[in-house]
């Protein structure tokens, strides 16, 4: 059995204790909501999108350390980035979570940039039940990006 240190890395606990980009954005910001039907966790992702760039992002809701830290790291990673780059990052993150892509027509992944803090979540794969916690924010982000078009 993998140890808890594989899951609860210090950087994850740091993002959980001090979440980045918490709050709300007023309309016309996009608001997307995600639920984990298994545990009842909820998340809201607010996006300001201008000229194809996510200029601001805020995260609301509540959840466990994995879902909250994943959301916090995600917000830091996507803020100020172009949508195309963010979509690439979402795919890389889901790959890291062992989630297979269902659309074979997607362009090849660009893995040239380091994942940074997000690497810390790699250990979640060893705890399959928690993968849904880690990906909740990312799926909600995708929802928000789709709405912003």
């Amino acid at each position: 059995m993998p140890g808890l240190e594989d899951l609860y890395r210090e950087i994850i606990l740091d993002h959980y204790r001090s979440p980045r980009n918490r709050g709300e954005l007023a309309p016309p910001a996009v608001r997307a909501e995600g639920h984990n039907p298994l545990c009842g966790d909820e998340i809201q992702v607010y996006l300001d999108v201008k000229d194809g760039i996510v200029t601001d992002i805020k995260i609301g809701g509540q959840g466990c350390s994995i879902s909250q830290s994943s959301a916090s790291m995600m917000s830091a990673a996507v803020k100020g980035k172009p949508i195309a780059e963010i979509r690439n990052l979402v795919r890389r993150f889901k790959n890291m979570m062992s989630i297979e892509e269902d659309d074979e027509s997607t362009p090849p992944l660009d893995e040239s940039k380091p994942l940074g803090d997000l690497e810390a979540l790699r250990g979640v794969v060893k705890f399959p039940v928690r993968i849904k916690c880690a990906t909740l924010a990312w799926n909600t982000l995708l929802d928000g990006l789709d709405q912003s078009i």
């Binding site: 059995m1 808890l4 609860y8 545990c39 959840g63 350390s65």
Partner: peptide, 18 residues
């Protein structure tokens, strides 16, 4: 968070629902 409680308890094979 209950999920984290349950995860930590699982290290001791204590099975609870979260």
């Amino acid at each position: 968070h209950p999920h984290d409680v349950s995860q930590v308890l699982d290290q001791s094979n204590v099975c609870v629902r979260a």
